[in-house]
Design a protein around this nucleic acid. Structure first.
Length: 210
DNA sequence: CGTGAGATTTCCT
DNA sequence: GGAAATCTCACGT
């Protein structure tokens, strides 16, 4: 039996899928079979319609074309010239919806993550958090770059597996981080009381999900 | 440990 | 030419 989530899992409403992905295991299997993985603890939803912050809001371009592909694909883009961000494509083919993975709780291949992040071996809680508590960080830790753009999460070396390793947890949502448009949408979902969730900046208030 | 300002490349208009 | 879904470092508490 495979734990890998199949295509049907991804054919959900954007927000239903976003919440369903929390706690799941994102795995990058290297060519030598080594697994690098972490549990998803924080993410943000981006929609084509009614969401000026989304890359796809102004329509399809060469850069964001993958957001319009079938759900269950990986969309990777470069931000601020130096960092990569991982997204899970959502919505039916032709609709530019996607979910940005913002933070992971490291699981397998932690030593490789430290190499990728150029962090000296450290066991402190702060050093572990620093491996993957942000979109650019987790992409670097899992060695995901433009090379991985457009991969199929069901059949490629990058997959998402079902997991209940985190046990029971509560989901909260808040306004999204680091954007200048669409600030009023509470489309950032995260696991409560998880150390890897990036702290909300001043002025962004978290609250219980209805 | 928390807050604040600068850095730096790619893509789109 | 300007914007961009961020990170890191420095400094104050």
């Amino acid at each position: 039996m495979s734990k890998v989530l199949n295509k049907s899992f991804y054919t959900k409403d954007l927000h239903v899928l976003a919440k369903a992905l929390l706690g799941k295991l994102l795995v990058h299997t290297l060519e030598d079979g080594q697994r690098i993985s972490g549990h998803i603890v924080e993410l943000e939803a981006y929609a084509q319609k009614d969401d000026p912050a989304s890359h796809s809001f102004n329509g399809k371009t060469d850069r964001n074309a993958l957001m319009f592909e079938s759900p269950g694909n990986l969309y990777v883009y470069l931000i601020y010239g130096m960092y990569h961000c991982c997204n899970v494509v959502s919505g039916p083919k032709g609709l530019g919806d996607a979910i940005l993975i913002r933070a992971l709780q490291p699981h397998e291949g932690i030593d490789i993550m430290q190499e990728n992040r150029h962090i000296k071996t450290a066991t402190s809680q702060a050093a572990l958090r620093n491996l993957s508590n942000g979109p650019g960080k987790l992409s670097q830790a899992l060695s995901i770059t433009k090379e991985e753009n457009g991969l199929d999460l069901c059949t490629s070396n990058v997959q998402i597996e079902n997991s209940n390793a985190l046990g029971d947890f509560s989901i909260s949502c808040s306004r999204r981080i680091g954007i200048s448009k669409g600030k009023n949408l509470k489309w950032r979902y995260f696991i409560q009381n998880n150390s890897w969730v990036s702290k909300a900046p001043k002025g962004i208030i978290s609250f219980e999900q209805p």
